[in-house]
Design a protein around this nucleic acid. Structure first.
Length: 618
RNA sequence: GGGGCGGUAGUUAAGUUGGUUAUAACGCCGGCCUGUCACGCCGGAGGUCGCGGGUUCGAGCCCCGUCCGCCCCGCCA
């Protein structure tokens, strides 16, 4: 992995005193020498990973991004080099000339290059390093805070584990280009500086100096442009491109991120899925050595919500939701009888033993929290040996209903049943959150399959915003399923879309749709969204105008390269696969950005800053 | 906008009921060491307790404000 190509095939003997080791060129990287290379004279470049000074013998682990090689200094090997090696410290950047020696019975099995070491005949210190704020060499047990890492990002990026992430990311990007090109896709570019589009994600604004008082927006995605490529007949487009969204950040959300953006004409969902599945299969095969079977599984949004309470279910483990609403109606227990939905999880006996009373109380408190759905409560029951329930509310339930629920949920003796009874949204949100909490608390991923991909299809076309107004779930150009066009006016909530997400292990890694190419249907969708002709004209006139000139049926998808890389690398944060990420407050701690602009610059842009909160006017 | 956790030596952490010289580990510096591989041994240096204010005879510790980092909700595909 990540071999660095040599600058010279073999080290030439040093004939000129003082000749630079740099001039000679490296013969090998620090990860490639093996026993078979014994006897060669080599030139290596790298950083001092670790130093072990035994007095008459100084060992240095020399590091570059390809690996580590032990180099040895001694007075009997080379007096001058040994003396100068005395001053070597962590992270000095050096070059060495030396002879590869087989370590025979003294090999280090923990190192890839442990069969050999290099006896150094000449050392050149290219540059010294101050004591680093954290140890690059202690990569595997890194013990420092995120702000120190981000402030010294160039040192953080020296850590082998992060270098592995970025070498993997590079491979994913290269394979993506290669694969999509081979599938006949054109790599085309779209502008970053675009027209501001209200709605959807908040845009970053870029003031126009040439047009005072006006602004570009940084593109939140190439969406409209890729559709225009289709109108243009540049069928089968892709791009690995940056997108910008001025929204609050998360572990898996950065203000600028990279999408693998794809669009094709004469599209059906299946024609979008096929090349993307082959791409995913190739990425996993060639970058990770994992063979995936195609087609990837598919599930409708309704089924995903019903079985997992989520539109991005983690399929690596079971613990599915069971619907017992109907049985609840006649159960005698008013909480169940009066709820819109009663659904539950069945924790099997082998995991239920750790669910003590105090644990169950904690789970109850958890589902009541706002961020976990804000359910009114959690009802729990233990299935006894005879099939009866031990539950605080058991005496209010009819034996028949308890038996029916146990059967429905597959509750063996010893299992714990957990119920939420609430409206649709709360019930599913709470049980989804609970399911994921139990995944981690009960270790349900032990021995689970590592990669579970899923296409989630048939999303609702609209959802209600906080004001109860219908808004697009995806974006306003997403096509309704043909058989649902009839409900656009009468019952918008019932309309499903030709929209889909690609989910991996409970993470959304991509999403797309078949677009509307019919002006009549587009008009109906705009109408359902309550957009006036004036608004439509102001926001989308150029696209609608383009659609007057023979737009092909088309559709596409965008994959989040950062998230794909994060999951493929086994990283827990997007920051570990983005070279120079922002903090949760959008700061770059290394460059101290964002920062104020000086008055002259603002004046040139005809911008005056308003008083900040707490700042006096003028 | 909201909730939670955190900020003490270069780093990571401990710091009792508010009490006299703020501890430890790693790192760093000096010395010794020819087979280490997280080398070892001996010695040493190192502090704006995030910042500002307050309470107090006395504040790392209590109170108010503020900044920063992380996780989450809202927001965002």
């Amino acid at each position: 992995m990540g071999a660095l190509s040599p600058d010279a095939s073999e080290a030439s003997p040093i004939t000129t005193p003082g000749s630079s080791i740099l001039e000679r060129g490296r013969t090998h990287d620090c990860g490639s020498l093996r026993g078979a290379d014994a006897g060669r004279e080599v030139v290596l470049y790298g950083w001092v990973h670790r130093r072990r000074d035994l007095g008459g013998r100084i060992f240095i682990d020399l590091r570059d991004r390809a690996g580590l090689t032990q180099v040895v200094f001694g007075p009997d090997i080379n007096e001058d080099a040994h003396q100068r090696a005395d001053a070597l410290r962590s992270e000095h950047c050096i070059g060495v000339v030396g002879t590869v020696i087989s370590r025979a019975d003294n090999q280090n099995p923990n190192m890839e290059t442990g069969e050999i070491e290099v006896e150094v005949s000449a050392l050149e210190v290219f540059s010294t390093s101050e004591t680093p704020p954290f140890s690059v060499a202690d990569d595997d047990r890194l013990d420092t805070s995120e702000n120190i890492r981000l402030k010294y990002r160039y040192l953080d990026l020296r850590r082998p584990s992060l270098q592995r992430n970025f070498m993997l990311r590079s491979k994913l990007a290269t394979l993506t280009r290669q694969h999509l090109a081979e599938e006949g896709f054109l790599e085309l570019e779209t502008p970053f500086m675009v027209k501001y589009t209200p709605g959807g994600a908040r845009n970053f604004l870029v003031p126009s100096r040439l047009n005072p008082g006006t602004f570009y927006a940084l593109a939140e995605s190439p969406q409209i442009f890729k559709q225009l490529f289709m109108v243009a007949g540049l069928d089968k487009y892709f791009q690995i491109t940056r997108c910008f969204r001025d929204e609050d950040l998360r572990n898996d959300r950065q203000p600028e991120f990279t999408q693998i953006d794809v669009e094709l004409s004469f599209a059906t969902p299946a024609r979008v899925f096929a090349p993307i599945e082959r791409l995913i299969q190739r990425l996993w095969s060639e970058a990770l050595g994992v063979e995936l079977t195609l087609p990837l599984p598919r599930m409708t949004w309704a089924e995903a919500m019903g079985r997992y309470g989520s539109d991005k279910p983690d399929l690596r483990f079971g613990l599915e939701l069971h619907d017992v609403t109907e049985i609840g109606k006649t159960s005698g227990f008013r909480v169940f009888a009066q709820a819109d939905y009663v659904k539950g999880l069945c924790v099997p006996p082998e995991h239920a033993t750790s669910l003590t009373r105090s644990q169950l109380d904690k789970l109850t408190a958890f589902v009541k929290k706002r961020e976990a759905g804000g359910a009114k409560g959690l009802a729990w029951a233990r299935v006894q040996e005879d099939g009866s329930w031990k539950a605080p509310f058991a005496k209010m339930m009819t034996p028949e209903s308890m038996q029916a629920i146990t059967t429905r949920m597959g509750g063996a003796p010893g299992a714990v049943l957990l119920f939420v009874a609430d409206d649709f949204e709360t019930t599913h949100t709470a049980l989804c959150a609970l399911r994921l909490l139990l995944r981690d608390q009960l270790g349900l991923l032990d021995g689970a399959p590592p990669w579970r991909f899923l296409w989630v299809t048939d999303f609702p076309l609209f959802e209600r915003n906080e004001k109860g107004v219908w808004v697009s779930s995806h974006h306003p150009f997403t096509s309704p399923k043909p058989e649902h066009v009839q409900y656009l006016e009468s019952d918008p909530g019932k309309v499903l879309a030709n929209a889909y997400d690609l989910v991996l292990n409970g993470n959304e890694i991509g999403g797309g749709s078949i677009r509307i190419h019919s002006s009549e249907i587009q008009a109906k969708v705009f109408k359902a969204l309550g957009l006036s002709p004036e608004e439509i004209e102001a926001k989308f006139s150029f696209l609608l105008e383009a659609f007057r000139y023979g737009p092909p049926p088309h559709g596409g998808i965008a994959l989040g390269l950062d998230r794909v890389a994060m999951l493929a690398a086994g990283a827990s944060s997007l920051r570990d696969v983005i070279a120079f990420p922002k903090t949760q407050r959008g700061h770059d701690l290394m460059t101290r950005c964002p920062g104020p602009a000086d008055e002259a610059q603002l004046a040139e842009l005809f911008i005056r800053h308003r008083p900040l909160p707490g700042e006096d006017e003028g």
